[in-house]
Amino acid sequence: MKLDELSLYEKPELREFLAQLRTEPDGFLEGMESAEAISLKLRHDVSSVVFLGVGGSGIVGDLLSDITAKRRNLPIICHKDYSFPPYLTKGALVVVVSYSGNTAETLSAMVKAYDAGLSMFAITSGGLMGRVCKKLGIPVVEIKAGLLPRMAVPHMLGAAISVLTGVGIIKMSTDELRNAVERAKRAQASVEVHVGLESNVAKQVASRIYDKTAFIYSHGPLSSVGYRLKCQLNENAKMLAVSQCLPEILHNDIEGWSPEVARCLAAVMLRCKDEYPAVKEALDRMEADLRERFGITVSRIESDEGDEVTKIFSTMVICDYMSFYAAIMRGVDPVRVDRIKSMREGIVSNTKLLEQVASRFGVKH
Rank of each mutant, 00 (worst) to 15 (best):
2 K>G: 15
3 L>T: 00
4 D>E: 12
14 L>W: 11
15 R>C: 03
15 R>G: 02
17 F>V: 11
18 L>C: 01
20 Q>F: 06
21 L>F: 05
31 G>E: 04
32 M>H: 08
34 S>E: 10
34 S>M: 02
34 S>L: 04
36 E>T: 12
37 A>I: 04
38 I>F: 04
40 L>D: 08
40 L>I: 12
43 R>K: 15
48 S>R: 15
52 L>T: 01
52 L>V: 02
54 V>P: 01
56 G>Y: 09
58 G>N: 05
59 I>Y: 09
60 V>N: 03
63 L>E: 05
65 S>M: 05
65 S>I: 01
66 D>V: 01
70 K>C: 02
72 R>K: 10
74 L>I: 13
75 P>W: 05
77 I>T: 05
78 C>V: 11
82 Y>R: 02
84 F>I: 00
85 P>H: 01
86 P>Y: 05
94 V>Y: 00
96 V>R: 02
97 V>Q: 02
98 S>G: 06
100 S>K: 01
107 L>M: 09
109 A>H: 01
111 V>F: 00
115 D>Y: 02
116 A>D: 04
118 L>T: 07
119 S>V: 04
133 C>T: 02
138 I>A: 05
140 V>R: 07
144 K>L: 00
146 G>F: 03
146 G>A: 00
148 L>H: 12
152 A>D: 04
158 G>V: 03
158 G>W: 02
166 G>C: 02
167 V>R: 03
168 G>N: 06
175 D>R: 15
176 E>S: 14
179 N>H: 13
179 N>T: 15
183 R>M: 12
188 Q>R: 13
190 S>H: 06
191 V>I: 12
191 V>F: 08
192 E>C: 12
196 G>S: 13
198 E>Y: 03
202 A>M: 04
203 K>A: 07
208 R>T: 10
209 I>Q: 05
209 I>P: 10
210 Y>T: 07
210 Y>C: 12
211 D>V: 06
215 F>T: 11
215 F>L: 15
217 Y>E: 00
220 G>C: 04
222 L>E: 06
223 S>R: 11
225 V>Y: 04
226 G>L: 07
226 G>W: 08
229 L>R: 04
231 C>E: 09
234 N>P: 03
235 E>M: 02
236 N>E: 08
238 K>S: 12
238 K>Y: 11
240 L>D: 03
241 A>M: 04
242 V>K: 10
245 C>N: 15
247 P>G: 09
249 I>A: 11
249 I>E: 14
249 I>M: 14
250 L>G: 12
252 N>G: 08
253 D>S: 13
255 E>C: 13
258 S>P: 11
266 A>T: 08
267 A>M: 15
271 R>A: 13
271 R>L: 12
273 K>R: 12
276 Y>L: 14
276 Y>D: 12
280 K>A: 15
285 R>P: 01
286 M>S: 14
287 E>M: 13
288 A>Y: 12
289 D>I: 07
290 L>D: 07
294 F>M: 08
295 G>Q: 01
297 T>Q: 11
303 S>D: 01
305 E>V: 02
307 D>K: 14
307 D>H: 11
310 T>W: 00
314 S>W: 12
319 C>H: 01
320 D>I: 03
323 S>G: 03
327 A>H: 08
328 I>F: 10
329 M>Q: 14
338 D>P: 01
338 D>T: 15
344 R>M: 10
347 I>H: 09
351 T>P: 00
352 K>S: 09
352 K>I: 05
359 S>R: 15
359 S>A: 15
359 S>P: 00
363 V>L: 03
364 K>H: 07
